[in-house]
Amino acid sequence: MMFEAVLFDCDGVLVDSERITHGVLRDLLAESGWDMPIEQCMHHFIGRTVRSRAALIESRTGQPLTDAWMKTFYDRRDEQLHARLQPITGALEAVQAAHALTGGRIACASGADRGKLELQLAKIGLAPWFGPHVFSGHELPRTKPAPDVYLAAARSVGVAPGRCLVIEDTPTGVTAGVAAGATVWGYCPAGSDGQTLREAGALRLFERMGDLPALWRGGAPG
């Protein structure tokens, strides 16, 4: 394998969380005066933090984005994630294979807040595989699409970014991985828009997380 470390995004790559999180966000925004279909909500917010879209939210709701509003969102989101979250099919096996192939040099690098990250990894049983190598963009000077979270993850496993493989599913995340100097592969399930991942710099696209071990070994087409 040409890579010495594998750095995974979390939402949409390891956990099937996007429709849960954005469903909660959609409902809360509707209560605040901005009603829209969940698909439109995901278009506006997927791959981005809610706070980074504060100006848009305030223009549509006519209300300030307060800490109290964000707490309500986090509380409702975490309740739903705890009750409903499932791993992406094949993610557990992919992480275990990456751990074996790299001698444990794997990390999780997400734009999500620390509480969400830890809840999700614990819920699906992946927390022990990553150990301390879990990074939140909220805790760094800049979050995705800036490279900070991937640079921090690479440092934590002692591997130069250019020897790291990043697994991402959004153009924002792909941009972050490329900016860090890593090779980025885009997870693109059937029906997803792979072109935007290519345009952001993903070197390879794949449809099933369970295919990753074979792809690393060169045993399956990209």
Score class of each variant (00 low, 15 high):
residue 5 A to I: 01
residue 103 G to R: 10
residue 111 G to Q: 02
residue 167 I to Q: 02
residue 122 A to I: 07
residue 134 V to L: 09
residue 75 D to G: 02
residue 97 A to V: 06
residue 144 K to A: 06
residue 18 E to A: 01
residue 189 P to C: 04
residue 21 T to S: 15
residue 193 D to T: 02
residue 182 A to M: 14
residue 13 V to Y: 04
residue 48 R to K: 15
residue 126 L to G: 08
residue 124 I to G: 01
residue 154 A to M: 12
residue 213 P to W: 03
residue 143 T to S: 15
residue 182 A to W: 02
residue 15 V to S: 06
residue 59 S to F: 11
residue 201 G to Y: 08
residue 99 H to K: 14
residue 195 Q to F: 04
residue 209 M to T: 03
residue 173 G to C: 01
residue 130 F to D: 02
residue 214 A to I: 01
residue 201 G to F: 09
residue 127 A to M: 09
residue 143 T to I: 08
residue 21 T to E: 11
residue 55 A to Y: 12
residue 184 V to P: 01
residue 52 S to N: 05
residue 67 D to K: 08
residue 101 L to Q: 14
residue 93 E to Y: 09
residue 141 P to D: 04
residue 123 K to G: 04
residue 70 M to V: 13
residue 92 L to Q: 06
residue 124 I to T: 01
residue 115 G to M: 08
residue 178 V to C: 07
residue 135 F to T: 00
residue 15 V to W: 02
residue 83 A to K: 15
residue 76 R to D: 12
residue 102 T to P: 10
residue 177 G to Y: 03
residue 66 T to N: 08
residue 188 C to D: 04
residue 100 A to L: 13
residue 81 L to P: 04
residue 80 Q to F: 13
residue 131 G to T: 12
residue 29 L to E: 09
residue 139 E to K: 02
residue 115 G to A: 13
residue 220 A to Q: 14
residue 58 E to D: 10
residue 100 A to I: 05
residue 53 R to P: 04
residue 98 A to H: 03
residue 56 L to A: 11
residue 122 A to M: 11
residue 170 T to V: 04
residue 124 I to C: 06
residue 151 L to G: 12
residue 123 K to H: 15
residue 118 E to V: 15
residue 189 P to W: 08
